[in-house]
Simulated scan of single mutants.
Amino acid sequence: MSQYLLPLAALVAVASPVAAQTGTDLAAVQRAIAGIDSMTAAFSQTDRNGQVLTGTLTLKKPGKIRFQYQKGVPLLIVGDGKALTFIDYSVKQVQRWPIGSSPLGVLLDPGRDISRYAKIVPSSNPAVLSVEAYDPKHPEYGRITLVFARSAAAPGGLMLQGWAALDTQGNRTTIRLSDQKFNVPVADSAFRWTDPRRQGRSS
C-alpha cells in the first residue's frame, strides 16, 4: 500500500448530509463558493507525521480539480468532472472515488447546497469563517473543515485559506493555500493525466 494514501483519504472524508444549518455566515460561504468559476493557488499539505508537501492547485467548475505536487513527489490527484482520481506513479497505483463522495464537491458543484451537510464552527476571530462537514451516520469518514478569511479581493468577500481533515484515529491532514487567483482562464487539458498502468495512454 502506498505511503501517500492519507491525503486522498482526507479529501474523500465526507459524503452524506447532516442536519440542515442556516444563518447569514453559511449563506455568505455559499455565495462565495458560487462566485468561484475557476481558481489557481499554491498549496502546502501537512500530514499526521508533520511531513510537508507543496504543489499547485487548479480548479474549474463543474467538477474539475488538480493537485500537482512538487517536483520529485510521484503523486497526482485529479478530478475530471465525475471522479476524483489518486495516482501514485511510484507504485503504479490508481484509485478513483465519485466526486459526490468528497467534501471537495462543496467547491466543485455549483448547484450544491452546503447547508444540508455543513455548519459554521464558532470562532472568536470575526475575520475568519470555518465550515465543518461531518456525517454522523458514517463516523468512519471523519471530519473536514474549510477555512475562509474575509477579504474584499475574493468572490463574495471570502478567501478560501484551506482545510483540515481529521480521521477516526485522530490523524489530521492540513491543506493551506496561498497566492489564490480566481476566475482565471483554465484549459480543460489541465485535468488530463497519464495512467501508469497503461504506458503511453492518457485519461
Rank of each mutant, 00 (worst) to 15 (best):
V78S: 12
V78N: 06
V78P: 02
G79Q: 07
D80Q: 12
D80A: 04
G81Q: 08
G81H: 14
A83N: 15
A83I: 03
L84F: 04
T85A: 12
F86N: 14
F86W: 13
F86C: 04
F86A: 14
I87A: 12
D88L: 09
S90G: 03
V91M: 02
P98V: 00
I99H: 07
G100N: 11
G100F: 03
G100A: 13
S101D: 14
S101L: 07
L104M: 10
L104T: 01
L104Q: 03
G105N: 15
G105P: 01
V106W: 03
L107R: 05
L108N: 03
P110A: 07
R112W: 10
R112L: 13
R112F: 05
D113Q: 06
I114L: 09
S115L: 04
A118V: 00
V121Y: 05
S124G: 15
N125T: 03
N125F: 05
N125P: 04
N125G: 04
P126N: 12
P126C: 06
V128L: 03
V128I: 03
V131P: 02
E132T: 00
Y134L: 01
D135T: 00
P136A: 08
H138E: 15
E140G: 14
E140T: 10
Y141T: 11
Y141C: 13
Y141N: 11
R143I: 08
R143L: 05
R143Y: 04
I144K: 02
I144W: 01
I144D: 09
T145G: 03
L146K: 02
V147R: 10
V147Y: 09
R150N: 14
R150S: 13
